[in-house]
Amino acid sequence: MPSTPAIRADRGQPSSQAGRVALNRGFLLVCLVATNFAVLLLAVLLISIAYKGLPWLFDFASIKASFSEGGDGFAGFKHWFRWEFFTEFTSRKAKSAGIRAPLWGSVWVCAICALTALPVGVGTAIYLEEFAPRNRVTRFIQTNIRNLAGVPSIVYGILGLTAFSRLFRVFGADEAWSIGDPESLFYLQLPFGQGVLAGGLTLMLVILPIIIIASQEAFRSIPNSLREASLALGSTKWQTVWNVTLPAAIPMIMTGSILAISRAIGEAAPLLVLGVPLFISNTPINMMSDFTILPMQIYNWASRPQEDFHGIAAAAIIVLLVVLLTFNAIAVFIRQKLHRSLA
């Protein structure tokens, strides 16, 4: 029987047990401090915003009255809010200023952004993952999309200004061509100018790479065995995508897209370049209407010297945060619910 050489694991000096334990503890401490630092900063930020902004959203006197003797308790909750903050346009006086214009502007712009970015982004992902040949051209496109996701959003603003707002100046001056009644919903002008359409398309550019990458990840996570099963039954590639791959990928696509759209709601920089007006006293009525958006209104108010404007800026921040957190909660909910049904 051949003898196996004994493995000598007892060479060298034994390392210090106490030292290893101390290092372990030390590292744990560093990590804890790092985590709590971030949480603490966020807490300070939220508290200071709530402190400044909540009085502009809620009518504390009315809440107090509801719960004092003779009050109507929760029945009177309608009077707790300062509804005028949502129904009024901005004003030179903070007391009578509201976010009606930027709120509706954000809704219009994000709706256009979502409706254009989703089909284009998911379509691109379907092509790249399911149809494109694995060659140099595809890899080039792939790399470029990944790079685009890291481009500062203000750069997209410049692109949006050139491509959508001015349409590369092929029509010469502004409002070179238009159809329909400017006061109705059906009105189109070329170039798009500073309307919600130009704004939405510019934001689409910002989030398109994110949506494409998220959708690609979604398609990549679908096991190949499902594609094979479908193809082996004699389906075409498109039938496989439509009936098997896309339905299975939709939860992940939705999660990524909702997060991307919630980023679009918070973007101010690209629309700043577009030349969005700050003081506006009407809500959009068609694709060409002037608009402003919440982040820009916040920036405008926060940069004024008066203390009261800082208050309504904080109140607008709270509204923006609530919208963003709602979107993120929906994304988490979809991920939880639909992932479970797939597994």
Partner: peptide, 19 residues
């Protein structure tokens, strides 16, 4: 190929029902 695969079916190593 689509018609071929209709005439020649396949069962795989791991069961792969659609979700």
């Amino acid at each position: 190929v689509v018609e071929l695969r209709r005439r020649v079916g396949m069962v795989f190593q791991k069961p792969n029902p659609f979700p």
